[in-house]
Design a protein around this nucleic acid. Structure first.
Lengths: 338, 338
DNA sequence: CTGCATCACTTAATCGATTTAGTATTGTCG
DNA sequence: CGACAATACTAAATCGATTAAGTGATGCAG
């Protein structure tokens, strides 16, 4: 079954076709330098022998690896968002014949240098994440999914979702459904997207003359901290709507609120800033922002490819691309829409 | 900020140290052939210059890529299981200085040949998946996570969870909680794990003199098909317990059952054959099998590494490794345990 | 018919490391 | 002192491709 034939090399093709390796190379790569007749003959023979060029050798010559490294934040395996985004990245990479590798989180210190890629994609960089700094220091072309949280840092490109708009949309939706005292529950990790939602929330509250009510959760103890925060909000406040920043958190809010005797979609509205399949499976479904993660991933990769091709001078301003998003209304914010 | 220095080569180190490239190579790789004094000098200089060997060149020489390709089934992004498993794989790979790439699903036909890896890891191969066949045909050393569904196919190694045991455990648990007519809801895709659960279920039913009640869902329309199946089970049957094979499916069952007026954990017990964070976030929490995906992933990679090192003859029997699992009891199967 | 360009190739250098085969020096033993 | 071995190197081949430089044959213009 499994062929043990050592792979066919260009040299063998050339010898079989009775030409030099160079001629064979020209023929196969479509470059000028051989007659049409020879080209056809070489192509024919190459396909007969099942020749496929040795990537590694090509890489060595071209000093390119054809590899894009992707860094996903740690402790977030709960979010299907990253999985989808990663698949989007992989799909788009394939269009440019690039392969995608995952950067391990456990990288202690030195080994990160052996990261052997043409470019780097960092999703949701968090200010607390020390690995992000070390990755940036590598000097590779970098595109981030969502902005870098630290204004001192900078990448060659970034893809951004308009969280301000969707946040306002949700808060307005809460409001017009009769919930005037929304609270938010956000992770302690400071990422650009969560910070921007927080900011928009605060702005919204100011415009509506409401005191903001912000609770924090930690990613690694999501259920406990979220439930604790939820209890706090429900016990001592007039809180009638909760925007949870992560999908998992929203589920925990819903569970805790039910236990607490509240009726979701009726006397307590709930929404999540990140959609996930689970939010549509549960009853009632949870209103959430569809970030189109797959498409988002594709955009990230696409931008990186363009940056690699253009090998433009690293200006101070990163190339910025915006990704479309949409609020998906479900029963958790009232039975209004479907 | 970003260094533009072209990378330091061995040649430069050698010249700076006034030795030949070979000597420098010996010194750096710890091989005999140089005096201790020279070795130290070379090491010193290498670290001063910030030398780091060119992976690609090493790969060309050794005809190894240091890359392990991972293939995840399509349409399953919902399952946090794969995300966790993948991280486990990446972590374990790092221990052997291997990088992990993801195989794109969209690979139509030819490009799959350009897969440039030392080994291949296939998670949950499905019989319906044509890509799996083409991957196996590549002739790379392959380890599968869960067995290959087709007895004609074979891999060099496989890591398997004992689904029979946990299935029986759950069905027994249903039984002793008073639910004597369990049904299962399983994906149409035939994967080794789902088939083995189905088999164990049928066995169990025979032993308990109950007619099996099996419903199928399709992965790409999970909510609709699951809800439809659930309705069917609840309407025309005595069904008092449902084992859903996927986490998302279990949530949909729960939602549909509630709508249907059943009380989960009371007059309808629910469990999932795959745990996920969401199952613990919801209320009531859903009993599920913890497959330790992270550990599972590590085991897969570890087995593959051992196979690569041993370059053993491809005997007919794949090396088989078993991964530990445990049922996690939650309120959906009665308030018994915590 | 000479001069010069063009074409269709081939030779050889190159990418950056590893490794084999050789060479010069030193040391040891009989 | 001469033979032989061990040591510490260096020169060159190698991995498999790409590509710059070189060569011989042909064509065409002057």
């Amino acid at each position: 079954m499994a062929q043990k034939h050592p792979p066919v090399t260009l040299k063998q093709v050339a010898e079989t076709a009775q030409v030099s390796r160079a001629a064979a190379s020209f023929a196969l790569s479509g470059k000028p330098g051989v007659s049409e007749a020879t080209r056809q003959r070489v192509l024919q023979i190459a396909s007969e022998l099942g020749y496929s060029p040795n990537q590694t050798a090509q890489n060595l010559r071209s000093s390119r690896t054809g590899i894009i490294a992707v860094y996903l934040p740690e402790n977030v395996s709960t979010l299907s968002y990253y999985m989808e985004a990663t698949f989007g990245i992989v799909d788009e990479a394939e269009l440019s014949n690039l392969t995608v590798t995952l950067v391990p989180h456990t990288s202690t210190n030195a080994p990160i240098a052996r990261l052997n890629a043409d470019g780097l994609l960092i999703l949701d960089p968090a200010r607390e994440d020390a690995i992000v700094d070390r990755l940036l220091a590598l000097g590779l072309p970098v595109v981030t999914g969502e902005a870098l949280p630290d204004p001192n840092q900078s990448a060659a490109g970034q893809v951004i979702s308009d969280h301000r708009r969707t946040t306002c949309e949700i808060l307005d939706h809460f409001h017009s459904a009769g919930a005037h005292f929304p609270a938010i529950i956000t992770p302690v990790e400071r990422m650009a997207w969560s910070m921007s939602i927080e900011d928009s929330y605060i702005d919204w509250c100011q415009r509506h003359n409401v005191t903001p009510r912000i609770e924090h959760t930690s990613m690694d103890e999501l259920t406990e901290t979220t439930k604790f925060s939820t209890r706090k909000l429900l016990e001592d406040g007039s809180t009638d709507a909760i925007l949870a920043l992560t999908d998992g958190s929203a589920l925990a809010v819903a569970a805790q609120a039910s236990e607490h005797g509240r009726h979701i979609g009726k006397d307590l509205l709930i929404a999540a800033a990140v959609d996930s399949p689970a939010l549509s499976y549960v009853d009632p479904g949870v209103t959430a922002v569809d970030l189109n993660p797959r498409d988002f991933g594709r955009r990230c990769m696409n931008l990186l490819v363009r940056i690699l091709d253009s090998k433009r001078a690293p200006t101070d301003e990163p190339l910025t691309e915006y990704a479309p998003t949409a609020v998906i209304y479900r029963a958790s914010t009232g039975a209004g829409n479907s």
